[in-house]
């Protein structure tokens, strides 16, 4: 084994690679779809938008690019970035490699909220706006409940929080399953589609809705990278080094959970991104969260947009569930990187 953490130049190369992948993903997100519109024409239209040259897009193509593909691509960037950063942050704050953004019950809470809206429990919830609103409320309610159960008191710590999350998730998932059984076949199908995640309903309004949450929450997590590095030596030693462990944990868990709740409310439960992307980045740049989190942000954004491009094109005009694509595309990539890393350190 080399015995040395990755060098700064290696990290810079990985960061540049992530940025290049992001550019490719943006290009794919805008140019690829059932209606063929060349990347050159899309780029020309982009330049035309800032007063350089003329757009060659027809009005129909312009509508497809700017009203359908662009908001979907931007929403994919935001969702992927937030899930990857939240996953990396959870792995750092809980010092647990299996942690993902849904650890504290966000998924179960959002699922219950969305199911209540889709099944229209109690009536009056059938308008589309209720689904993200109740999913968001359910996600935050679940995390608040988890914190109340496992995050307070003299013996509160990462383990009690995780166990609290397990209990809350089990409770809310059972409630969600029960409610789902009460629905019509159509609404059950809609619940399943929501649970597997999708960007199909993306619009500029959903982008505007989610953007402030992602900017603030992902920003807080990235800034907390230095604190997570200190925390890697354990709770007691971190405290003796001057880290206010409980406050740091509260802030980063709140930021990751709020950001995750926001993106889940508009995109459903997209799995795999939050766990696989930070691990992929860790394999390439080492264990420092000051490196992992910003590069995961870029990589997660690119990864989800590329997966969404696959999801909406391979079976067009129908779509594959995004959560399925993230797993099918991400697993082989992860295995390849893992085996390359093993060869390097062997």
């Amino acid at each position: 084994m080399t015995g040395r953490p990755p060098s700064a130049s290696r990290v810079a190369i990985v960061a540049l690679g992530a940025a290049a992948t992001l550019l490719v993903a943006v290009g794919c997100g805008l140019a690829i779809g059932p209606t063929p519109i060349g990347l050159g024409r899309v780029v020309g239209a982009l330049f035309a938008g800032v007063g350089l040259g003329h757009s060659t897009l027809s009005p129909l193509d312009a509508t497809i690019v700017w009203q359908l593909r662009a908001p979907r691509m931007v929403l994919g960037l935001l969702v992927g970035a937030m899930l990857a950063v939240a996953g990396g942050t959870y792995q750092g704050v809980f010092r647990n490699p299996l942690a993902d953004p849904y650890l504290l019950g966000v998924a179960a809470g959002a699922g219950l909220g969305a199911t209540i809206a889709i099944i229209d429990v109690g009536g009056g919830l059938s308008t589309p706006a209720w689904t993200p609103a109740l999913a968001f409320a359910g996600a935050l309610g679940a995390v608040a409940l988890t914190w109340a159960v496992g995050g307070r008191g003299a013996h509160a710590g990462p383990t009690t929080l995780i166990l609290g999350g397990v209990a809350v998730a089990a409770l809310l998932t059972s409630a969600q399953t029960y409610l789902q059984q009460q629905g019509s076949p159509t609404s059950i199908a809609r619940v399943y589609i929501w649970l597997l995640g999708s960007l199909a309903t993306a619009s500029w309004s959903s982008v505007v809705l989610v953007l402030p949450y992602v900017v603030v929450c992902a920003g807080v997590c990235v800034v907390a990278g230095r604190a997570l590095d200190v925390l890697s030596v354990g709770e007691d030693e971190s405290r003796s080094l001057g880290l206010p462990v409980r406050r740091v944990r509260l802030v980063v868990v709140a930021a990751s959970s709020l950001g995750t709740a926001a993106v889940v409310s508009v995109a459903g439960l997209i799995g795999f991104v939050g766990i696989i992307v930070p691990h992929l980045v860790r394999l390439l740049v080492g264990t420092s969260y000051r490196r992992i989190l910003p590069i995961s942000l870029v990589t997660g954004a690119a990864f989800l947009v590329l997966c969404d491009t696959v999801a909406r094109t391979v079976l067009a005009p129908s779509e594959l569930p995004l959560g399925v694509v993230t797993a099918v595309v991400g697993s082989p990539v992860f295995v390849v990187v893992l085996s390359m890393r093993r060869r390097v350190v062997a």
Binding site: S232, G234, E237, L241
Partner: peptide, 17 residues
Amino acid sequence: ALRLSLVAQHPVVPPGM
């Protein structure tokens, strides 16, 4: 931490640092 430092009995040494 500005007044007192600690060497724990079983210090945690994070791999990769």
